[in-house]
């Protein structure tokens, strides 16, 4: 077995019942060379300090639980390898969210934003499943597939410069999901999403910094989704709203 190496971890702690503000705490962790940052955090929790709180579950980069700031960058800690970082490794809760405790942040605002963009198939008339599937060609599928890959890990929210100043901004993940449904050949709900997408918290707040797409661990490219939606939104607004407004 390869040698373990002791790595220093500086972890941001915040226990609302006792701490006025977050403080850094240092742990020395004997790490295997193939460990991810999450392995080290779990080691701390199990062996050194059971009072440390964090979220994790799948440890394979798909449940979206384990996002944290690692040396200042939002990362899935189950896919961030300790060998890729210089000593010490600094781990903090995701930026742009209130801290609940230690590495756990408050995600309620995201859940509300998600609901607001109506991320479900909207049809004028529903088809009975006994009558079979809606046909959808591989090309139709590829129109939205990429944007359906979001695991809601919130790395893009932690990276977004707009959210830093405008916490009401719907944000990259929710907007990319709205676009995903708008692009789905089975969906007829584009009009119903128009209002919220064009609202002050919607697509027009995005400054196209592209940080979201750079940190996305699943290649979703929310920045592109927002830009495309802006174009579509504009065309649609011109088509749907403008003529009526002018009549």
């Amino acid at each position: 077995m390869e040698e373990k190496r002791t790595i220093r971890f500086e972890v941001l702690r915040f226990r609302p019942e006792q701490d006025e503000e977050p403080v850094w705490q240092t742990y020395d962790v004997p790490c295997r060379p193939d460990w991810v940052v999450l392995d080290a955090i779990n080691y701390i929790k199990d062996e050194i300090d059971p009072t440390l709180s964090h979220r994790w579950s799948c440890r394979m980069g798909v449940c979206g639980s384990c996002g944290m700031m690692v040396n200042g960058t939002p990362k899935l800690t189950c896919s961030a390898f300790v060998r890729d970082y210089p000593d010490p490794i600094r781990v903090a809760p995701l930026s742009n969210f209130p801290i609940v405790r230690d590495l756990v942040v408050d995600l309620e605002s995201f859940i509300e934003k998600l609901e607001r963009v109506k991320p479900w198939i909207i049809r004028r008339a529903e088809k009975d499943p006994a009558l079979g599937e809606y046909l959808q060609s591989p090309e139709d599928l590829s129109n939205f597939k990429q944007y359906s890959m979001c695991i809601n890990c919130m790395l893009c929210y932690a990276a977004c410069p707009v959210l830093l100043h405008e916490p009401e901004f719907l944000g990259p993940a929710a907007l990319a999901l709205a676009f995903r449904y708008n692009q789905d050949s089975r969906d007829e709900g584009e009009r119903q999403r128009l209002g919220v997408l064009n609202s002050p918290e919607g697509i027009w707040s995005c400054s196209y910094a592209n940080e979201c797409s750079e940190v996305c661990p699943k290649g979703v490219d929310p920045a592109a989704a927002i830009q495309k939606q802006k174009l579509l939104g504009f065309l649609q607004w011109a088509r749907v709203v403008a003529p009526r407004g002018g009549a």
Binding site: I121, P129, A130, E133, Q136, P138, L141, R186
Partner: peptide, 22 residues
């Protein structure tokens, strides 16, 4: 089969054949 089709109606991006079937 009904349940998986229902999920298709709910937006699940099942992989497709060229002709658009599941």
């Amino acid at each position: 089969p009904i349940e998986l089709t229902r999920l298709e109606h709910w937006g699940c991006p099942w992989s497709r054949e060229e002709d658009g079937r599941i």
